[in-house]
Amino acid sequence: MSRYTDVIIAGFGGQGVLLIGNLLAYAGMSQGLNVTYIPVYGVEMRGGTANCTVVLSEDEIGSPIIHRPEGLIVMNRPSLDKFQPRLKDHGVQIVNSSLIDQELAEKDRVRSVLVPANEIADRIGNTRMANMVALGAYVKATGFLPLEAVITSLEKVISPHYKKLIPKNAEAIRAGAECVK
């Protein structure tokens, strides 16, 4: 069976969910996979939440839009409320426990990985890297892509002007991965 996965990444606008969606897609490309990335925009974006869907596949990709994903990264409470019920059985979700009450995360139907992404990012130096922490956790928890593929793809999504921030972002990705048992 050929390799395939999909993930919805969701949070507040400004939490960098579109950025890590792009990063994940680049990492998939670097591994020779077909990838699609589609941001959800429109009315849903006006409410202050943003989300994107990334599909990674050995085969040609059909739908870039996924209603019931295999994976989920939820950075805030409204995103959990909206997407957790849609997560496939036995799917994996990264729950940002810095902003989401961990009691709300389903335990039996799906695998919930609780990551205090904001706190970890704070410790590394900037809360704004919480997205990277969450992505690191997702990559480790799913094991679909090597962590290094994500780290080496950072240069694709961080403009040359901010190149000096790449090591810190890499550190955030690794720190997220370490949260996953």
């Binding site: 077909n34 699609t36 870039p64």
Partner: peptide, 8 residues
């Protein structure tokens, strides 16, 4: 969809 989707 086509306009906003990214692919290689």
């Amino acid at each position: 969809i086509l306009g906003n989707m990214k692919e290689a």
